[in-house]
Amino acid sequence: MLERLTAFFGNPGGYHTPLPEADASHAMGALLVRAAKADHTYLVEEIAMIDKILARRHGINPVAAAKMRAECELLERKMPDTTGIATILEHAIGTEEKEATLIALWQVVFADGVSHDEEDQLLHQIEAVLGVAPERAKELQAQAEG
């Protein structure tokens, strides 16, 4: 009896969230989540910023943005290699979108008001995969900060 109750409340109806397609939109969202978690915390300010960015970038409402973020969180957990996620973007989007993605990543990092070395290292790794020159990356970081 206890096992049935535990099974029922643990996953009512046996619902399973499928892994989203690793397309450019979800890869970008997964990188946003990865950037938020780089300092080993995942704060409400960062989550709100991710939802805001997803809504703005994809022209969707806040509920759809939150749903997309949940899909991106799942993709982020299932794809441990940051370079692999960033490579999806590197091949799928142009220079302008790459730069917009880096600004968005820095906005997520800055959302909690605290800077960590882990976040800087992660974003510099992503910048390199996307092929953004270090000088231009610094400009984008400053743009996101201001």
Rank of each mutant, 00 (worst) to 15 (best):
W106M: 09
H116M: 08
L32T: 10
R136I: 03
T83L: 02
L140Y: 06
K98L: 11
K52F: 06
A144W: 01
A22F: 08
V44C: 00
A104Q: 03
I126K: 06
Q121E: 14
P134L: 07
K78F: 00
I47S: 12
M68S: 13
V108G: 12
D117I: 05
N61G: 15
E76N: 11
K52H: 14
L75F: 11
G113W: 05
I60D: 09
T87M: 13
I47K: 14
P20F: 04
G146T: 11
L75H: 03
Y42N: 14
P18I: 01
R56Y: 06
I50S: 05
A65H: 12
T101E: 05
H40I: 05
A144C: 10
H40C: 02
A22Y: 00
M28C: 12
R4I: 03
I93A: 12
G94T: 08
A55P: 05
K37H: 04
L102E: 09
M49E: 15
L123G: 03
V114Q: 13
D51T: 08
E127Y: 08
E97F: 01
L89S: 11
T83F: 05
G113V: 09
L74Y: 02
G14L: 09
A35L: 01
A38P: 04
G14R: 05
P80H: 05
I85V: 15
R34S: 12
E46P: 10
A104H: 13
V129A: 05
T82I: 15
S25R: 14
A24G: 06
D81Q: 04
I126L: 07
E3L: 13
V108P: 10
A100Y: 01
G113Q: 06
L75Y: 10
Q121H: 14
A144N: 08
P12K: 01
R57L: 10
P80A: 06
I88E: 06
A86V: 11
E99N: 14
A111T: 10
A36Y: 08
Q107C: 13
G131S: 06
V63M: 12
E76G: 01
A144H: 09
F8M: 10
T95P: 02
